[in-house]
Amino acid sequence: MMERRKSTPGTKIAVEHLNVHYGKKQVLADICIEIKERQITALIGPSGCGKSTFLRSLNRMNDAVPGARIEGEVRLDGENIYNPRFDVVQLRQRVGMVFQRPNPFPQSIYDNVAFGPRILGIRRRSRLDEIVEQSLREVNLWDEVKETFRKQNALTLSLGQQQRLCIARTIATRPEVILMDEPASALDPIETLRIEDLMRALVQEYTIVIVTHNMQQAARVSDWTAFFLTDDGQIGKLVEYGETGRVFTNPRDQRTVDYITGRFG
């Protein structure tokens, strides 16, 4: 188990009474949670418990889902991101996202990493070069691609390299928060470990929220753990939330005990 910092961290994202509906179906009910700054928060729970939906409501990726309705508040540094005046484009530049399956664009490695900075209007070649190199170094991909990254198509990389590239693409614009939706579930154990090490390194600078199926992964990398579960009406709820060590060794809710001891899920 890794060393945990003792000082109480500040709140980066405060979620209050969040309800999410897809059409007539309610997916999440009354979620209240405070996500701590520069910590890794793991969202665990069985399939269909709404943890991915919750993650996607933190950067408003649910907006595009037809029939999606979101109530409640999600405050990023105190500002409600669902306020109509809050610019969704700016929000996503502050809250980046890494997806379950690596999804680099079918372009060169360089263009992938430079995508975000270019959108922000950075045109100067030397500045872009600098950002690309630094981002690739931060995800430990630089040494593997430094000869070829200007021309090589990102789709020719291995899956694990592609996922690290996607992380590099996300951090190239220096977001404040990184959301990760089961970032290692498509990868082999060695690549999974590399991603986890990478997350521990990145958390020095970023607030990270990760959805994972894998309880060992949550226990290994996260500082905080939130356990989601559907109730009798198939509506996702937050059952337990606390520091990871405490949730795994001394869970307060019987359902958490059952889940982490493998009685279901």
């Binding site: 700016q90 929000l91 530049q93 980046g96 999804n103 959108i119």
Partner: peptide
């Protein structure tokens, strides 16, 4: 063009037009 490319672009804070022009059409 796979939806995942669009998702990646939108999640990077690209506008719809930037997504179409820089990701979907080149792909």
């Amino acid at each position: 063009v796979p939806k995942s490319y669009r998702d990646a672009s939108l999640a990077m804070g690209a506008t719809r037009w930037q997504t179409i022009w820089r990701v979907v059409v080149p792909s």
